[in-house]
Each structure stands twice: as C-alpha cells, then as structure tokens.
C-alpha cells in the first residue's frame, strides 16, 4: 500500500517554523548577568532559529509529495513503548530482567516464535551483562535478584 501526500511535509514545515520562532524567543528572553564577550549567548541561537524558521516556512509553502509505504505501525509502537518503559524499570528490576523484557517485546514485534524469543531474550540479556559488566568492568544496574 502506498500513500502519496504532502501533509507530512506541511506538518514538519509548520513544526520547524514553530521551533525556530521558539528558539528565537527563548534566546531573546535569556537573562544574561555577565558575558565575557560582546556577543554573548543570545545571538547564535537567534540566528540559527531564524534560519530554521525560514527553512520551515519554505517546506510549509512548497511541500513535496512524499510517497511512503504504509507499514505495520503496531510493531513500531510496540518497540517504541518497550523502549520507553525500559528506563523506568531498569533500576527496580535490575539489568537482566529488564533487558529480557525489552528484548522479548522487540522479538515479538519482529514476529519471533514465543518460546524462541523468550530463550533468545534471556540469552542476550545474560551475555550483555557478562560482556559489559563482568568482562569489561562497566557496572550495570543490579536489581533485587543481584543480576
């Protein structure tokens, strides 16, 4: 399935325009008690914000018709949600359980068989702990289980 449309470009252009104006406004409103140089920290973000706003306006006014393939957004959302939850559970659960859950969700998103995904997830999480924490000596968070 292919969909052609310019709404993606219009949204992006409008967002860039807003971010550009926001950057100018933010830099304008900075309170600078002391600056070592005559320019100070305001000018550069304002110039960059202005260029971004111009580029945004150009995209908004003359959007490309982008053809994109419509894929399986359910899988994208599953991976994104798992990645957003992961940092929240990493400290309470510990590295290996949290990473196993992350890998399992991701494996299911890539249509892995349930049992195989479970085994692979545990193996991946365990081998990362072994490699990074134990072999390379970079501490990863350990949960109540000690792993």
């Amino acid at each position: 399935m292919n969909a052609a449309g310019s709404s993606g470009d219009r949204i992006a252009g409008a967002l860039f325009l807003l971010v550009g104006i926001g950057a100018i406004w933010h830099a304008w409103s900075l309170d600078v008690p002391f600056a070592a140089d005559p320019v100070g920290p305001k000018v550069f973000p304002m110039v960059v914000g202005a260029i971004l706003a111009i580029a945004g306006a150009a995209i908004l006014l003359r959007p490309d018709r982008v053809e994109w393939e419509r894929g399986d957004y359910g899988r994208v959302i599953l991976v994104a949600v798992a990645s957003l939850v992961y940092p929240l559970v990493l400290d309470p659960l510990g590295f290996v359980p949290a990473t196993t859950l992350l890998c399992f969700a991701c494996a299911k998103a890539f249509r892995g068989p349930t049992l195989g995904s479970a085994i692979a997830s545990v193996a991946l999480a365990g081998s990362f702990l072994l490699l990074i924490d134990i072999l390379l000596g970079l501490p990863l968070p350990r949960g109540p289980l000690g792993i």
Binding site: C106, P139, P141
Partner: peptide, 24 residues
C-alpha cells in the same frame, strides 16, 4: 534471524548508553 538480531541491537545500544552515562 531478525527476531534475534534487532532485539540484540536494541539491548546492546541501551546497555552501552547506560555504561557510558550511568543514567536512565
């Protein structure tokens, strides 16, 4: 297979970021 490869890449990416920054 993809269902081992990409979970592995994701897990290793996050483990690497954590190892470098120590911050969730």
């Amino acid at each position: 297979p993809n269902w081992i490869l990409f979970p592995g890449v994701l897990g290793l990416s996050f483990a690497g970021v954590y190892a470098a920054t120590n911050s969730t």
